[in-house]
Amino acid sequence: MEGPCRVLRAVLYLFSMNTDYSHYYDASSLFHGSLLNIMGTRLDAVFIETDRALCESVWQKTVAELLRLDKMFNRFDIESEIYSVNLRAPTERVVASDELMSVLISCKRYHLLSRGLFDVTLSDFDAVDLDTEHQTISFSEKNVSIDFGACAKGYALDKVKQVLVEADIKDALIDFGNSSVLALGHHPFGDCWKISVENPFRTGEIVDEIELRDVALSISGNMPTHLKHIVNPRTHQFIEDKKIVSIIAQNSFEAEILSTALMIANHEEQKKILSHFDHALFKEYIL
């Protein structure tokens, strides 16, 4: 078994090679970094900062942090913590790291506030038992497994924000696969960052323009190529509506969770969920 397993690991590794690219535009004091194959998508970072060396070191820290989180949240990576939790939690109490535990506790809280529509198990979060005293996780159902697909990018962006704030980078735009955007400060020639939302079903058609400053944006929606990727955990139906929802919140984790939940929710549910989040700005676009 050892042999084939190692080969498989090598193959998986090749497919998940992260490529990082960066370039500093001197005249504009603009740093651009790109990281491919990260959490199933890509990340682009733009910093406006005159200190080139600072940009480069912040980017290296950002990349390292993203790779760490990618590994931690990747349920397919046989070396990740979540892989081993998913494998062992149905039969034993698995001791979890502080970080994994605290992420799951937050997820539980959002699960309740979203009336069950945000669910990292995609079916039955109640079957996940979080023992905070002993810091263990166990599943009471056999078929349960945890998938952070709907919140990992948001969580990672909050961590990236910390890196930027600590380094005193004031103006930055981070685009995580188009669906999660973090805006710090403003564009060098404007008082905010202005971005637009494109209709994925009609290229070039802009459905909205959004101004961002020191906030997080998350977008959820379907694309012609990917109609079946959002599931209602209560009905197990795919959400196939041709629509997009956007949410602006103070942190990226919350924004990403809410955008998924609000994409699934009907009108009534949307109102009820939003009643818990006064500051969040929600929009829905029917395409």
Binding site: N178, I219, H226
Partner: peptide
């Protein structure tokens, strides 16, 4: 990402305008 490239081009030309980067998740 084309949207990010557009943003960079705009900054280089000292233009402040909106760039189309938001949408459902980009997949490889």
């Amino acid at each position: 990402a084309p949207g990010i490239l557009q943003l960079i081009n705009n900054v280089e030309k000292r233009v402040f305008s909106t760039v189309p980067i938001a949408g459902p998740s980009w997949v490889p």
